[in-house]
């Protein structure tokens, strides 16, 4: 019985940790949906956003104010990205834009470090990374409060975004742009402002993801590398699907933990470093467009 409990615990912890990957992947999907751009800088945006947030707090801004100032800052970042990087590269190939966003990532990392320094910051959200007593009492499962919060936050954000896309004029415009940018702009949908909104939304998602990660592991440069794990999430879920990002994150999170706990000991542990990527490769062989992605048919 305890073994089954332990297994459930591992899976639940994995699922909840997976929502953190989902949060990073979500920002990726937002931008990909709107502009077919693989934004490799999403990881850097996570780092940039949360480091700025902590920086503003250190300057003495209260929590809520720092949060909104950071969102404003991410909007500015989005504005300049759109103007200076994406517009000039509008009709270039996907690979070219991807490489440019790698460059963008380094710019953001460099700027964040230059502005706020390199030391590891602690971020206290008032939510501990310890098991919740009443869950232990009622079910015997050890589930971290932070994990649970991350899961709830992710769920809220996804519902919020889904509503935004479905019921607002902005969202309708966004879906039109995602479908066919040329046709959308010819009927008068303002492409730049849609892009600005999308990048700001991706910035908000990055900030929230960064706050969750930062509360667990400290606000530090390693966040950028952690964010790389969002890539296999995207491959499993599909680049253009918000539910895909969530399900992909859950699959990666759970399988990573299960593999680490049950297979890892045979190899001396630490396989979670590469297991998601290898899992993604097998997924690619089986279903290259991802679970929820659209099948892309390329013609000559």
């Amino acid at each position: 019985m305890t073994e089954i409990l332990f297994f459930i615990e591992v899976v639940v912890a994995g699922l909840l940790a997976g929502t953190m990957y989902s949060l990073v992947a979500l920002g990726f999907v937002l931008i990909y949906k709107a502009s077919s751009t693989f934004n490799f800088a999403q990881g850097a945006m996570v780092f940039f956003a949360v480091l700025s947030f902590v920086g503003f707090m250190e300057l003495g801004l209260p929590f809520v104010l720092a949060f909104f100032v950071t969102i404003l800052l991410m909007g500015v970042v989005g504005f300049f990205t759109e103007r200076l990087v994406l517009q000039p590269l509008m009709n270039e190939s996907e690979d070219t834009v991807l490489m440019a966003t790698i460059g963008l990532g380094f710019v953001l990392e460099g700027l964040a470090q230059a502005a706020w320094g390199v030391e590891v910051r602690r971020l206290d959200l008032g939510i501990g990374d310890f098991p919740i007593p009443w869950i232990i009492e009622s079910t015997g499962l050890f589930i971290s409060a932070l994990d649970l919060t991350a899961g709830l936050v992710a769920a809220t954000m996804i519902i919020g975004l889904a509503l935004l896309f479905k019921y607002t004029k902005m969202g309708l415009g966004l879906r039109a742009v995602a479908d066919d940018p040329g046709a959308a702009s010819s009927i008068g949908i303002p492409l730049p402002s849609i892009m600005l909104m999308v990048w700001t939304a991706a910035g908000v998602v990055a900030l929230v993801a960064g706050m969750m990660w930062g509360a667990r592991a400290g606000v530090q440069f390693a966040l950028v590398d952690l964010a790389l794990k969002a890539l296999p999430v995207l491959i499993i879920g599909g680049f253009s699907s918000i539910p895909g990002a969530i399900v992909g994150g859950l699959i990666i999170g759970a399988s990573e933990k299960v593999l680490e706990v049950y297979v890892g000991p045979f190899f001396g542990g630490g396989i979670e470093v590469w297991a998601p990527f290898v899992l993604a490769i097998f997924f690619l062989l089986w279903r290259p467009e991802g679970l929820f992605g659209e099948k892309i048919i390329r013609r000559v």
């Binding site: 200076l84 070219t96 460059g103 710019v107 460099g110 230059a114």
Partner: peptide
Amino acid sequence: ATIISSIELVVFGVLIIVFMI
């Protein structure tokens, strides 16, 4: 020194974007 290494990152990144464009 950390500022210098940050500037390095920014310059590399900017150069990549500029060259891509």
